[in-house]
Amino acid sequence: MASPTSPPASRSQARKPLGKMSDWFRHTLLKKPKEMPVSSESPPADVAEPSSQDSPPGPGPSRSSAASPAAAPGGASSSGRWSKDYDVCVCHSEEDLAAAQQLVAYLEGGAAGLRCFLQLRDASPGGAIVSELCRALSGSHCRVLLITPGFLRDPWCRYQMLQALSEAPGSEGRTIPLLAGLSRAAYPAELRFMYFVDGRGPEGGFRQVQDAVVRYLQTLS
């Protein structure tokens, strides 16, 4: 005897499970996901980690800071000794030109190789005397005053002396008087506040003048 068969399910009953499933998918897809808490130790997900190409350079020196300073003459820097054209300007009377030339030869021929300004040799041809002298004094680190009887008689030498003092009022080793053929009593009153080199000493005082100039130049480095 055949077993009774159950009546077929109606269409509404067959659709019901499918309707529930579609409602579940719709609810799941449309539901806003919860935001994950962001840890203070880890970067946000939407912030990219810098790559090795984007990362800043290390603390090593840059090209500009690693550049070596310019060397002295030829590529001389604009500071220190090479900031001026001359190391020493020799001021003298016309009648003492031979003694001034001997002093310049000594200073330029020494181990220090000092750069000297001698007016009749180094002044620009056609230049005004006053302008050339002022240019030489301001363009020299030190000034040597060759003080002789001829220097004291010459009004032009007195002008050179006063101009040198105005360029370096505090001296600081920049103005060096070289007393030659004069007694201490004849030393100019304008220079009484600074020591002089006695030309009666060894080598006519030339060595002392050279040492004084070199000492001052060493303070510039």
Rank of each mutant, 00 (worst) to 15 (best):
K84H: 13
G74T: 13
H27W: 08
Q53K: 12
D154H: 10
C89E: 03
L103Q: 00
T175W: 03
V104P: 02
A67K: 13
E172S: 11
A66K: 11
E95M: 09
R63H: 12
R143W: 11
S166Q: 11
L118G: 00
K84W: 04
R184S: 15
L220G: 08
T5F: 10
G181R: 04
K20Y: 01
E94D: 09
S10N: 08
S42L: 12
V130K: 13
K84P: 07
E94V: 09
V38D: 13
R121Q: 11
A76S: 15
S83V: 10
T219N: 05
S3K: 12
S140A: 08
E108S: 07
R215T: 09
K84Y: 06
V90D: 02
P50C: 01
G173Q: 03
M36V: 14
R135F: 14
S3T: 09
L18N: 02
V47P: 02
G109Q: 06
A105S: 10
K84S: 05
L30G: 10
S138V: 08
P8K: 08
A9Y: 06
R207T: 15
R174H: 13
A98T: 10
I147M: 01
P44A: 04
A72K: 13
L118F: 01
C157S: 11
D23A: 00
A128Y: 09
S62C: 06
A2M: 06
S65I: 15
Y195K: 11
A14Q: 13
Q163S: 12
Y195P: 09
R158E: 12
L179W: 11
H141C: 07
S39T: 07
P37Q: 12
K16P: 01
D54R: 14
R135H: 14
